[in-house]
Nucleic acid binder design. Structure first.
Length: 303
DNA sequence: AGTCTCGCACCTACCGCAAA
DNA sequence: TTTGCGGTAGGTGCGAGACT
């Protein structure tokens, strides 16, 4: 596939988190003061924004994700606009497969909607996955309507920047082509971050800083789910994701690490999601339907 | 008492720009 | 030049208060 795919220029040295001793802003609060300009107002004019490194002290809200009796996440599952098909397995013995903030598991596969690189008026499903590239992971992005040109890059940002360039070009947008790879791949999503952090082997990732998560309140989970596209990946794309995954797993050998098979059972579960038996675990199933009246009333008032 | 309206809290997703 | 952090717009449900 790489023969046809877009190859993004090669890796620089893997990004390693900044100096742990760097100065840290402490006025950050994850939720509180998240309102517009709360922090900006406090920042003296002209003062450069500093990066925050207090990852460990942050508490992030996560959606409830259905788990089986063994505690394994039931996949595929919709998280926000992303559908997680596979969590993959943690490669803890090579530093380029994680940094202080993210872990990039080999076999990790998600789908999301975004503008087509061919038709400016259409949104298509993109399948994103990670393969074992040896010293460093490879990030793949494949659009539903351009399966012959998958994008492969050494970083998530690199892969999605390529997509954004193409999309902005075809949509004739004079727009920044900057993109946040972790955002688009879903790594910055708290729920996904937690699911990855729960994989076996993350404790062996020496640079990774364990993050703290709390369960999101029901009332907000419902709102979050509504914003998604209903957790319905196309069967075709699912099978394509499955094929990509199978290809990557046969190459990278899941036996590379002995960890990970008892928990995420990434490969077997993925391989088993044939189109017939796919049922996406939309998170709605785990949510009590506590107040239908309210929403119907609300909709009357606003629509 | 029941229904409706509005404001609030909180979240996701996108994108600009600081940092590396 | 590239990466990814952080600001913020927009969307949701909930609950309090007003209205019928």
């Amino acid at each position: 596939m790489s023969a046809l795919g877009i190859q993004v220029p090669l890796p620089r040295a893997p990004y390693i988190g900044p100096d742990e001793n760097a100065e840290v802003d402490t006025d950050i609060d994850v939720y509180a003061n998240s309102g517009p300009s709360a922090e900006i107002a406090q920042r003296p004019p002209g003062k450069r924004r500093k990066r925050h490194h207090d990852i460990a002290s942050k508490v992030r809200s996560v959606q409830p994700v259905p788990q089986d009796k063994n505690g394994n996440y039931e996949l595929p599952v919709q998280v926000g606009i992303l559908t997680v098909l596979n969590l993959g397995h943690v490669v803890w013995d090579r530093d380029a497969y994680h940094n202080e903030r993210y872990i990039w598991p080999v076999g990790y596969t998600v789908q999301r909607e975004y503008y087509s690189m061919r038709d400016p008026n259409r949104q298509v499903i993109y399948t994103c996955w990670i393969t074992d590239g040896g010293e460093a992971p490879l990030f793949h992005v494949e659009a539903e309507d351009t399966p012959e040109s998958p994008i492969v890059a050494p970083t998530a940002t690199g892969a999605w920047t390529t997509v954004l360039r193409a999309v902005n070009k075809i949509r004739q947008r004079e727009h920044s082509n900057s993109a946040s790879g972790p955002d688009y791949f879903g790594f910055s999503h708290p729920t996904i971050a937690k699911m990855i952090q729960d994989l076996p082997g993350t404790d062996k990732c020496r640079m990774y800083i364990t993050q703290h998560f709390v369960s999101m309140k029901d009332r907000h989970v419902r709102g979050v789910i509504k914003k998604g596209r209903g957790g319905r990946p196309s069967v075709e794309m699912l099978s394509r994701g499955q094929r990509a995954l199978m290809a990557s797993t046969s190459k990278s050998a899941w036996s590379h690490t002995d960890a990970g098979h008892d928990h995420g059972d990434a490969v077997p579960s993925t391989a088993s999601y044939s189109s017939e038996r796919i049922s996406v675990a939309t998170l709605t199933g785990s949510i009590s339907s506590s107040n239908n009246n309210s929403s119907s009333r609300r909709s009357l008032g606003h629509q």
